[in-house]
Simulated scan of single mutants.
Amino acid sequence: MARKRTQADIISQLSNRELLWNVYLSQTLFLIISFIIGFFLFDSWSTFWSLWTFDHHELIYYGLIPGVIIVIVDIIMIRYLPARLYDDGGINRRLFTSISIPHIIVLTAFVALSEEILFRGVIQTHFGFWIASILFAIVHIRYLTKWVLLISVLLLSFVIGYIYHITDNLWTTVAAHFVIDLLLGLYYWKKMR
Protein backbone atom coordinates (compact mmCIF):
# COMPACT_ATOMS: atom_id res chain seq x y z
CA MET A 1 0.00 0.00 0.00
CA ALA A 2 1.33 3.44 -0.91
CA ARG A 3 2.26 5.78 1.90
CA LYS A 4 0.12 8.91 2.16
CA ARG A 5 2.17 11.96 1.17
CA THR A 6 2.39 14.60 3.86
CA GLN A 7 2.49 18.32 3.30
CA ALA A 8 6.19 18.23 4.20
CA ASP A 9 6.75 15.63 1.42
CA ILE A 10 4.99 17.82 -1.12
CA ILE A 11 6.80 20.97 0.00
CA SER A 12 10.18 19.22 -0.11
CA GLN A 13 9.67 18.60 -3.83
CA LEU A 14 9.17 22.31 -4.55
CA SER A 15 12.09 24.55 -5.38
CA ASN A 16 12.51 27.67 -3.25
CA ARG A 17 11.13 29.73 -6.12
CA GLU A 18 8.07 27.46 -6.45
CA LEU A 19 7.50 27.64 -2.69
CA LEU A 20 7.65 31.43 -2.80
CA TRP A 21 5.23 31.61 -5.73
CA ASN A 22 2.83 29.31 -3.87
CA VAL A 23 2.86 31.75 -0.96
CA TYR A 24 2.12 34.66 -3.29
CA LEU A 25 -0.61 32.64 -5.01
CA SER A 26 -2.31 31.70 -1.72
CA GLN A 27 -2.23 35.30 -0.51
CA THR A 28 -3.63 36.54 -3.82
CA LEU A 29 -6.43 34.00 -3.48
CA PHE A 30 -7.15 35.36 0.03
CA LEU A 31 -7.51 38.85 -1.45
CA ILE A 32 -9.79 37.63 -4.24
CA ILE A 33 -11.93 35.70 -1.75
CA SER A 34 -12.04 38.77 0.50
CA PHE A 35 -13.31 41.00 -2.25
CA ILE A 36 -15.87 38.48 -3.51
CA ILE A 37 -17.29 37.80 -0.04
CA GLY A 38 -16.96 41.46 0.93
CA PHE A 39 -18.93 42.50 -2.16
CA PHE A 40 -21.93 40.60 -0.79
CA LEU A 41 -21.49 41.36 2.91
CA PHE A 42 -20.62 45.07 2.99
CA ASP A 43 -23.37 47.59 2.25
CA SER A 44 -20.89 49.65 0.29
CA TRP A 45 -17.17 50.03 -0.30
CA SER A 46 -17.20 53.04 2.00
CA THR A 47 -18.24 50.72 4.83
CA PHE A 48 -15.18 48.58 4.11
CA TRP A 49 -12.88 51.61 3.88
CA SER A 50 -14.21 52.88 7.24
CA LEU A 51 -12.40 49.92 8.87
CA TRP A 52 -9.07 51.61 8.04
CA THR A 53 -8.08 54.45 10.34
CA PHE A 54 -4.55 55.78 10.49
CA ASP A 55 -3.91 56.47 14.17
CA HIS A 56 -0.22 56.39 15.02
CA HIS A 57 -0.93 55.82 18.74
CA GLU A 58 -2.97 52.71 17.95
CA LEU A 59 -0.32 51.52 15.49
CA ILE A 60 2.33 51.75 18.21
CA TYR A 61 0.33 50.49 21.21
CA TYR A 62 -1.76 47.83 19.48
CA GLY A 63 0.41 46.98 16.47
CA LEU A 64 4.10 47.47 17.13
CA ILE A 65 4.33 46.69 20.86
CA PRO A 66 2.21 43.50 20.86
CA GLY A 67 4.00 42.36 17.68
CA VAL A 68 7.42 42.74 19.29
CA ILE A 69 6.27 40.97 22.48
CA ILE A 70 4.88 38.05 20.47
CA VAL A 71 8.15 37.74 18.52
CA ILE A 72 10.20 37.76 21.74
CA VAL A 73 8.05 34.94 23.15
CA ASP A 74 8.32 33.02 19.86
CA ILE A 75 12.10 33.35 19.74
CA ILE A 76 12.37 32.17 23.35
CA MET A 77 10.25 29.13 22.47
CA ILE A 78 12.28 28.46 19.32
CA ARG A 79 15.51 28.58 21.30
CA TYR A 80 14.46 26.52 24.32
CA LEU A 81 11.90 24.02 23.06
CA PRO A 82 13.04 20.91 21.24
CA ALA A 83 13.26 21.66 17.52
CA ARG A 84 10.80 18.86 16.67
CA LEU A 85 8.04 20.73 18.56
CA TYR A 86 8.58 23.98 16.70
CA ASP A 87 9.44 22.63 13.24
CA ASP A 88 6.99 23.57 10.47
CA GLY A 89 8.69 21.23 8.02
CA GLY A 90 11.36 23.80 7.29
CA ILE A 91 9.01 26.01 5.30
CA ASN A 92 9.74 29.28 7.13
CA ARG A 93 13.46 28.58 7.11
CA ARG A 94 13.50 27.84 3.37
CA LEU A 95 11.21 30.72 2.54
CA PHE A 96 13.04 33.42 4.45
CA THR A 97 16.60 32.31 3.75
CA SER A 98 16.05 32.15 0.00
CA ILE A 99 15.12 35.83 -0.44
CA SER A 100 16.70 39.21 0.28
CA ILE A 101 15.77 41.50 3.18
CA PRO A 102 13.84 43.92 0.92
CA HIS A 103 11.95 40.93 -0.47
CA ILE A 104 11.19 39.75 3.09
CA ILE A 105 9.69 43.19 3.78
CA VAL A 106 7.52 43.04 0.64
CA LEU A 107 6.44 39.44 1.27
CA THR A 108 5.53 39.96 4.94
CA ALA A 109 3.63 43.17 4.13
CA PHE A 110 1.64 41.37 1.43
CA VAL A 111 0.88 38.43 3.75
CA ALA A 112 -0.18 40.73 6.62
CA LEU A 113 -2.40 42.80 4.36
CA SER A 114 -4.10 39.91 2.56
CA GLU A 115 -4.69 37.80 5.67
CA GLU A 116 -5.95 40.69 7.79
CA ILE A 117 -8.35 41.87 5.09
CA LEU A 118 -9.83 38.37 4.92
CA PHE A 119 -9.79 37.23 8.53
CA ARG A 120 -10.41 40.48 10.41
CA GLY A 121 -11.86 42.81 7.79
CA VAL A 122 -14.34 40.38 6.26
CA ILE A 123 -14.75 37.32 8.47
CA GLN A 124 -14.44 38.85 11.95
CA THR A 125 -16.45 41.92 10.98
CA HIS A 126 -19.37 39.78 9.81
CA PHE A 127 -19.08 36.45 11.62
CA GLY A 128 -17.27 37.28 14.84
CA PHE A 129 -14.05 36.90 16.72
CA TRP A 130 -14.17 33.14 17.35
CA ILE A 131 -14.91 32.08 13.79
CA ALA A 132 -12.22 34.36 12.35
CA SER A 133 -9.63 33.18 14.87
CA ILE A 134 -10.33 29.48 14.35
CA LEU A 135 -10.38 29.79 10.55
CA PHE A 136 -7.07 31.69 10.68
CA ALA A 137 -5.52 28.77 12.58
CA ILE A 138 -7.01 26.18 10.22
CA VAL A 139 -5.64 27.97 7.16
CA HIS A 140 -2.16 27.59 8.65
CA ILE A 141 -2.53 23.85 8.04
CA ARG A 142 1.13 22.99 8.49
CA TYR A 143 0.77 23.92 12.16
CA LEU A 144 -2.18 21.62 12.85
CA THR A 145 -0.09 18.50 13.49
CA LYS A 146 2.38 20.16 15.89
CA TRP A 147 0.71 21.02 19.18
CA VAL A 148 3.14 23.83 20.09
CA LEU A 149 2.69 25.48 16.69
CA LEU A 150 -1.08 24.98 16.84
CA ILE A 151 -1.33 26.62 20.26
CA SER A 152 1.00 29.39 19.08
CA VAL A 153 -1.03 30.18 15.95
CA LEU A 154 -4.32 30.00 17.88
CA LEU A 155 -3.05 32.41 20.53
CA LEU A 156 -1.66 34.69 17.84
CA SER A 157 -5.00 34.66 16.07
CA PHE A 158 -6.88 35.42 19.28
CA VAL A 159 -4.51 38.28 20.14
CA ILE A 160 -4.79 39.85 16.69
CA GLY A 161 -8.55 39.29 16.70
CA TYR A 162 -8.78 40.97 20.10
CA ILE A 163 -6.70 43.90 18.84
CA TYR A 164 -9.21 44.33 16.03
CA HIS A 165 -12.11 43.94 18.47
CA ILE A 166 -10.89 46.78 20.69
CA THR A 167 -9.65 49.13 17.95
CA ASP A 168 -12.03 48.45 15.03
CA ASN A 169 -9.03 49.38 12.92
CA LEU A 170 -7.54 47.10 10.29
CA TRP A 171 -4.31 49.13 10.19
CA THR A 172 -3.52 48.01 13.75
CA THR A 173 -3.95 44.32 12.95
CA VAL A 174 -2.01 44.65 9.71
CA ALA A 175 0.76 46.41 11.65
CA ALA A 176 0.89 43.71 14.36
CA HIS A 177 0.82 40.89 11.78
CA PHE A 178 3.49 42.61 9.68
CA VAL A 179 5.80 43.21 12.65
CA ILE A 180 5.49 39.57 13.74
CA ASP A 181 6.12 38.09 10.30
CA LEU A 182 8.86 40.58 9.44
CA LEU A 183 10.84 40.12 12.66
CA LEU A 184 10.52 36.34 12.56
CA GLY A 185 11.47 36.37 8.88
CA LEU A 186 14.56 38.43 9.66
CA TYR A 187 15.35 36.11 12.59
CA TYR A 188 15.27 33.07 10.28
CA TRP A 189 17.23 34.94 7.60
CA LYS A 190 20.01 35.86 10.03
CA LYS A 191 20.04 32.60 12.01
CA MET A 192 20.13 30.24 9.02
CA ARG A 193 22.67 32.04 6.84
Rank of each mutant, 00 (worst) to 15 (best):
L186R: 01
I105N: 13
I99Q: 11
W21L: 14
L20H: 05
I134Y: 08
F30I: 01
G161K: 01
R5M: 14
S15M: 05
K4A: 03
S157F: 07
W130R: 05
Y164G: 02
K146V: 07
E116K: 05
I33A: 13
K4D: 03
F136V: 13
H140D: 00
K190A: 09
R142C: 03
K4F: 01
V122N: 08
Q124T: 02
L118S: 04
G67N: 12
Y62N: 14
L155F: 06
W49G: 01
E116Y: 06
Y187R: 06
R3K: 09
G128A: 10
K4Q: 03
S34A: 13
Y86W: 14
V139C: 09
H56K: 13
S34E: 13
P66H: 12
L144R: 00
L107A: 09
N92A: 05
A83W: 09
E18Y: 07
Q7K: 01
W49H: 05
L113D: 06
E18G: 12
S98W: 12
L135M: 15
S26F: 10
H56C: 09
G128W: 10
I105H: 10
R120V: 10
L183I: 07
D88L: 08
Y61H: 13
F54A: 14
I78C: 04
Q27W: 01
L81P: 01
Y86G: 10
L29F: 13
V159W: 00
G89E: 02
R84C: 02
I101Y: 11
R17K: 15
S44M: 07
L155W: 03
I131H: 08
F40G: 15
R120C: 05
F110Y: 15
F110L: 11
T6H: 01
V174N: 08
I72G: 06
V68G: 13
L107N: 10
D168C: 03
L155E: 09
F39L: 04
F96C: 11
D55N: 15
M1S: 11
V106Y: 09
R5V: 08
G161W: 01
N92P: 14
V174Y: 03
I10R: 00
R142D: 04
L149M: 10
Q7H: 01
S44N: 12
V23L: 08
D9E: 04
W147H: 01
L41R: 10
I10H: 00
M192Q: 13
V23I: 14
L184R: 08
R193F: 04
F30E: 06
L183P: 06
Y143I: 11
H126D: 06
Y80P: 00
I33W: 08
I60D: 09
T145K: 05
A8S: 05
S100E: 12
Y164R: 03
R5N: 11
I69F: 15
V122S: 02
T172I: 03
I105M: 15
P102G: 02
F129W: 15
R142G: 08
Y61D: 08
L51W: 03
L144I: 00
T108Q: 09
